[in-house]
Design a protein around this nucleic acid. Structure first.
Length: 214
DNA sequence: CTTTGGATCGTCT
DNA sequence: GACGATCCAAAGG
């Protein structure tokens, strides 16, 4: 069950890798889950990307070789996980936005006590990192090392869980304020673990409140 | 059901 | 000093 994805899979543009990652398996320790939603982030030309203004200490993993994990900390409390794509020096990445767990429900539940339903365990980029225990220690890890405790593998359809072919849908990325019209969000049609089911670019908050004083 | 505001802190202006 | 590639709970219809 370990057919780990190889470097060549990741050495493509992020908008090609992002749909390609749908249906693949993320393995973190003994936990496994199926990726069901992703977003592509480009390099210099993508104003929504962390790499848009050039390399910094925070985003340096994006500038490294493809197939490594870029983990960042945001909103003072959440981690998000990306897979670096493209070629070395070309900062592209794919954000993992949602996962369908395949095992370990008890552990996931313990790490996500506020989840009301099973779907809430991993249906968001910050949620899945908490549930799978992904944090800053995982930043920069090479996902193609077969012996690693964090890898990506092609769908093995383990333990009788059927992997029927799903159709892929696309739409605008979520939670960004620039380049809101690019359709670089990808998800498996109808999958119940997808983070948002009715989302359009118009839902972006352009109405930022002017600073309140207190 | 939808909308709104608070939490909380590393990073960059 | 402002703002997030977010999440959650409370308030509003």
């Amino acid at each position: 069950m370990s057919n780990t994805l190889e470097r060549s899979f990741f050495a493509r543009d992020s908008d090609e890798v992002a749909p390609g990652l749908l249906g693949t398996i993320l393995n973190v320790g003994s936990l496994t889950g199926r990726i069901v939603e992703t977003e592509a982030y480009g390099g210099a030309e993508d104003s929504a990307s962390h790499a848009w203004r050039g390399e910094t200490l925070r985003n340096s993993t994006m500038f490294g070789p493809p197939g490594h994990l870029y983990v960042y900390f945001t909103y003072g409390m959440h981690f998000c996980a990306n897979v670096v794509t493209g070629s070395q020096g070309d900062p592209q990445a794919v954000l993992i936005r949602a996962i369908e767990p395949l095992n370990g429900w008890k552990v996931l539940r313990e790490r996500r006590p506020k989840a009301h339903t099973d779907f809430d365990l991993t249906n968001g980029p910050g949620k899945l990192c908490a549930a799978f225990g992904i944090n800053r220690e995982h930043n920069g890890r090479d996902l193609t090392e077969k012996q690693s405790d964090i890898t990506l593998s092609s769908d093995p359809s383990p333990s009788g869980i059927p992997s029927h072919p799903d159709s892929i849908r696309t739409g605008p990325r979520i939670g960004i304020s620039r380049a809101v019209d690019l359709p670089w969000r990808f998800w498996l049609d109808g999958n119940l673990f997808v983070s948002k089911h009715n989302y359009s670019a118009k839902q972006q908050r352009h109405d930022k409140v002017s600073p309140r004083k207190k």
